[in-house]
Design a protein around this nucleic acid. Structure first.
Length: 497
RNA sequence: GCCCCCAUCGUCUAGCGGCCCAGGACGUGGCCCUCUCAAGGCCAAAACACGAGUUCGAACCUCGUUGGGGGCACCA
């Protein structure tokens, strides 16, 4: 059994400096699932302490993405909660207070080294192939004297004092114990010259104050994990359960997803950004299903999951720490599965904007009839207009060459179409019941294969060589328009002969 | 360069010492169904990175090598 049958408090803590991508969404999803299945709390915290990196609109996009995926947060911006504020930019003083506590206890110290000095120090270390690390100059300073320099207004930062000797054992839920020598850990800066905290302090303080029980984050934090544990232990706080998720690799499996790689993907109609996925015709159900499976599995064969399934079946015990490459073709497949899992009405609503966007005037009555016959033929919603746009068009413009049946001449084809016209116009209406058998019989009479005959009609009526089932399509288009299009096809063939 | 993490089909993964000459899924190839395209069904090719060790027995445990990844900021 999962150890988390008690209600958890988990947080998704993105910095609003970039867009919400699949990796972030997956972290948020796991947070959400854990919270929902234990009756716990899912918190959204905006990590925007660094105002210099503020990106307008990023927070909004982030929230939109989460909402689109259906990952509603219980505490955070817009919804409040009793552990706020939930934006780090509004918590500056809190962090300063805690940093000063560490100073008082001798667990942190003031540092007056200038950025220039640090840069040249690093350069030298790099040249001598030494580990790159603060050299500890200000660590030796007398605390009293340092305090006086601070009081006098000398620019300074606050650094955490890592013990010189020994090692620290930290525990990641997926990897077990990790032992790190203290001498390899840097005396990281906690508070900058401008008084703002850095992530390392801010996140630990917030997690503690917000009573976070499980920290789920990317494995890029693994290298500063020992520092974080040191900070928490310096305060004497209880540690959360740490779960470091693997990162997402590019589809090739070689290297992490980069900006450049994303641009390449966009050309193929794929994107790692949640807000793009919506426009590309992906349904949130499929996105959730896919990212859930990147690093988590239920058993050796079950792969289709709805959000409710996931809430019920997710378990951190079945998480996999190995990095994973995104497989977009599988993404398409899952999107198809979830599209087929939708009710007709639901699918109508989702597909409509894509028809509108493609410039079609959508008749809702027609759409209701069209949707069932395209449901199993589209992998993304975006494919709907190209597949079925002709249903909403007044006229259709076939390629004359395609009007000629397989192994037939233009004259043969025109004759066949004429016969079809006579047949169909004699019917009270055109649908599978009334037209299927007569049409097949006609093909026989003309010594044609059904496929040959149907092919010609298909091109004349839909304008395309590939379409939903012919007779069902004609039933939707209606007798009048069908006959009109067939006449037009006969004309086109006549002009060719 | 230093620190840390990871390692099963092309990709996502199951496997936690004998059930595995390794199971599922996507993709690929073939067949069936079929008015085109799909969907669906069936079949096939396709992997335990390498080397030592532990053990009666290793994909599973240990060590090393190799490969991949992350980090080394007054970013998060």
């Amino acid at each position: 059994m999962t150890p988390s049958t008690k209600p958890v408090r988990v947080r998704f803590a993105p910095s609003p400096t970039g867009r919400l991508h699949l990796g972030g969404a997956r972290t948020a999803l796991y947070d959400y699932l854990l919270a929902r299945q234990t009756g716990g709390t899912f918190i959204l915290r905006i990590e925007d302490i660094d105002l210099k990196r503020y990106v307008p609109g990023a927070e909004e996009e982030l929230k939109q993405g989460l909402r689109w995926l259906g990952l509603e947060w219980d505490e955070g911006p817009d919804v409040g909660g009793s552990f706020g504020p939930y934006r780090q930019s509004e918590r500056k003083e809190i962090y300063l207070d805690y940093a000063r506590q560490l100073i008082d206890q001798g667990k942190a110290y003031y540092c007056f080294c200038t950025p220039q000095r640090l840069a040249s120090m690093r350069e030298q270390q790099q040249r001598s192939k030494l580990p790159i690390k603060y050299d500890g100059t200000c660590r030796q300073l007398d605390p009293g004297k340092a305090a006086k320099r601070v009081a006098a207004g000398e620019p300074h930062v606050i650094r955490f004092k890592i013990p010189e000797e020994g090692s620290i054992t930290i525990h990641d839920y997926l990897r077990g114990d990790i032992v790190v020598e203290n001498r390899t850990i840097d005396d990281y800066i906690l508070i900058r010259t401008d008084g703002f905290a850095l992530y390392h302090l801010a996140a630990m303080v917030d997690d503690h104050l917000m009573k976070i029980s499980h920290v789920i984050r990317g494995s890029e934090w693994l290298s500063t994990f020992p520092l974080h544990a040191h900070i928490i232990r310096a305060f004497g706080w209880e540690e959360p359960i740490w779960i470091h998720l693997s990162i997402f690799l590019k589809p090739s499996g070689k290297g992490k997803m980069s900006k450049r790689e994303s641009a390449e993907l966009m050309k193929d109609g794929y994107s790692i950004y949640i807000n793009d996925l919506q426009g590309l015709g992906y349904v949130p159900e499929a996105v959730l299903n896919c990212i859930a499976l990147m690093g988590w599995s239920y058993d050796d064969h079950t792969e289709f999951f709805t959000k409710e399934d996931l809430i019920q079946k997710f378990s951190i015990d079945r998480l996999n720490p190995a990095p994973a490459a995104i497989n977009f073709t599988k993404f398409d497949h899952f999107n198809g599965l979830h599209i087929r899992n939708l009710s007709i009405e639901d699918l109508c609503n989702r597909v409509k904007p894509f028809f509108l966007n493609a410039g079609y005037k959508v008749d809702d009555q027609v759409l209701m009839q069209v949707t069932p016959i395209i449901q199993q033929r589209i992998a993304t919603l975006e494919e709907a207009p190209t597949m079925a746009g002709f249903f909403f068009e007044e006229h259709v413009y076939p390629n004359p060459q395609e009007l000629i049946g397989a192994k037939m001449t233009a004259v043969d084809s025109a004759n066949a179409l004429r016969a079809v016209y006579d047949l169909l116009s004699s019917l009270p209406r055109i649908d599978t019941e009334t037209a299927e058998i007569p049409m097949r019989n006609l093909a026989d009479q003309l010594h044609l294969k059904a496929g040959q005959l149907f092919g010609i009609i298909r091109v004349a009526v839909t304008g395309k060589t590939v379409s939903p089932p012919l007779i069902e399509s004609m039933a939707i288009i209606g007798k009048e328009k069908v006959l009109e299009r067939i006449l037009n096809g006969i004309d086109m063939l006549g002009n060719m002969a």
